[in-house]
Design a protein around this nucleic acid. Sequence first.
DNA 1: TATTGTTATACTCTATAACTATA
DNA 2: TATAGTTATAGAGTATAACAATA
Lengths: 141, 141
Amino acid sequence: MADDREDLLALVMPLTRALRRIEDEAAAGHGITMWQYAILSVAVERPGSNQAAVADTLAYSRNRIVADVDRLERDGLLRRQPGADRRANVLEVTAAGTATMRAVRADIRRHEEELLAPLSATACQALVKSLRRLRAHVRSS
Amino acid sequence: MADDREDLLALVMPLTRALRRIEDEAAAGHGITMWQYAILSVAVERPGSNQAAVADTLAYSRNRIVADVDRLERDGLLRRQPGADRRANVLEVTAAGTATMRAVRADIRRHEEELLAPLSATACQALVKSLRRLRAHVRSS
DNA sequence: TATTGTTATACTCTATAACTATA
DNA sequence: TATAGTTATAGAGTATAACAATA
């Protein structure tokens, strides 16, 4: 009853905040937002995805992705391509879009390394492994 | 360059979301919000704290805490006590407030256990240890 | 009938700035 | 002058509902 262990949320939230800031700043450094970077990432890694699929993968919103895709298309980082299903827009990332995505990702990786500095290589591997397991678990429940 | 490792944020965000929902629902189950539960927790664990100190501890806002303290005081879970510095309100949790806080915490712990189920006891300890180290690191930077 | 993309709307959360009373 | 608490306001973020085109 008098369980005085610390809340897990209080343990994880500072880390999440720091990671969020890293992605915000890295994306802003290349003229896009964190969500736009995430959209480019998924569109590159899962070619043939439409807007709904990308939004669902990111646990993002099918409404809000519209404005982001508008912006990415206007800036020439991505194209809406008609697919077999003529309702859907297949998101095709351009060469410029891929380059921007990779540049943002490189910046993110650099700052993530600094953040992980206090952990040993094995501790870091164990952390990633545990986080992957927990993610799979919360997704299936 | 072509660093194809996954973003840490994408790894941590689902976990944070699940923990956030656990706390939201546990607090709502006892008629308060997650932030109000967090305020009660800090006020209990650090007696003599004023509103600013509690807000800072939670990385919350000195503005928004006002309405939460209003609500907690109105419901008899907490009192604003004048301290030596008459500008400051020392937050004194009532017996009812302590009971509510512990009840919410017990519900949170129960759901946290379910969430951590896929990890072994040693993996769980290692995870908490690594998260504590990372939190200390991001706070000091 | 259901789904994709889209738009509009409202609601919540958050950040900023100002004000008061004390110090 | 600086700080604690308070209030008001504006902005960002988010959720919900509706619509047209297509399946």
